[in-house]
């Protein structure tokens, strides 16, 4: 088995194609209908939609946990099942999904990222240990490797699971709500790391409520509500009109009129917020800014 530390360079044509995917669950619930979008190597894409809009179903389809009733998911032209064997898709779970009192250490968790490369007994080789150590150092958690995972702060917990994804050498990295329960400093650190991953050619797909930070680090956006409403470059897709469409009446909308300000003839801003960080859209200049 290849133990290359740079899997990307050997396969420059990484693509994620979600084509016409519909998922209907056993009970008849249509979670997703005719969802289509394509992502290319070297991108950070935000997956934005209300709760129940099918974000997690889409993640499950990309990871191969649900089989689309209709349509297909292809990664670099291959099926999800074929890609699983290559450890290409790494998942960073939501904090609520993890049992933090589980008797495993930070080091154990990161080594789990290497299981796919180990033999049947899962005995780590020197290379596995080195990669795990490097991954932990990269997220600044190496000094905490002996800690039980419950003994960490919210941000540290996130970084440990990011380190596991790094150790896995995943080429497509899925993050589920990476910023909930995380302090501003860790958020910055995570964003910096994601940018580096984009630089290295990974596809990073982030499911988030945190609208305000999307324009800051995501170059692509997929808006979903039971189907893909719009996808493409952030500047084009992440607009007031599209967001209103995606969120219906859920978001809070404030129009702030700056017309009184000296030196500005007419200047209007829109603030859009669910419960996390608000998004400010400067409607005159089409220039998105973080709030």
């Amino acid at each position: 088995m290849s133990r290359s530390t740079d899997p990307i360079s050997h396969n420059p044509t990484l693509r994620l194609d979600v084509h016409d995917v519909s998922v209907i669950y056993n009970n008849g619930h249509v979670a997703l209908r005719d969802a289509t979008f394509h992502l290319q190597s070297g991108t950070i894409c935000a997956l934005v939609g209300v709760n129940g809009s099918g974000k997690s179903t889409l993640f499950k389809a990309i990871m191969g946990f649900v089989t689309p009733t209709h349509g297909k998911v292809r990664i670099a032209g291959e099926t999800v099942q074929a890609v699983q064997k290559k450890n290409w898709v790494a998942y960073v779970p939501q904090s609520e999904e993890v049992d933090w009192s589980f008797p495993v250490s930070v080091w154990d968790v990161v080594l789990m990222g290497r299981y796919g490369y180990m033999n049947f007994l899962r005995i780590p080789s020197a290379a596995d240990k080195q990669i795990a150590a490097e991954s932990l150092k990269r997220v600044g958690m190496y000094d905490y490797r002996q800690r039980q995972i419950g003994e960490l702060s919210g941000g540290q917990k996130k970084r440990v699971f990011l380190a596991r994804a790094l150790a896995q050498h995943g080429r497509i990295i899925l993050l589920d709500e990476p910023f909930t329960g995380v302090d501003a400093k860790t958020e910055e650190a995570i964003i910096t790391l994601l940018r580096e991953l984009r630089q290295e050619g990974h596809i990073v797909l982030v499911s988030t409520h945190n609208l305000g930070s999307v324009p800051e680090f995501c170059d692509q956006v997929v808006l979903i509500n039971r189907t893909v409403l719009a996808y493409g470059p952030t500047r084009e897709v992440f607009t007031e009109k599209n967001l209103s469409h995606a969120f219906g009446g859920v978001l809070r909308h404030f129009k702030i009129d700056h017309t009184d300000q000296p030196g500005k003839a007419k200047h209007e801003m829109v603030m859009i917020s669910d419960d996390e960080r608000p998004l400010f859209l400067d409607t005159d200049e089409e220039n998105e800014k973080k709030g």
Partner: peptide, 22 residues
């Protein structure tokens, strides 16, 4: 005892276990 690591991963994080092809 032979399968304990896979079983432990299965108990801890079945999602990750599946995503790496277990």
């Amino acid at each position: 005892l032979l399968w304990r690591k896979d079983l432990l991963l299965f108990c801890f994080d079945p999602g990750h276990a599946r995503s790496i092809g277990l």
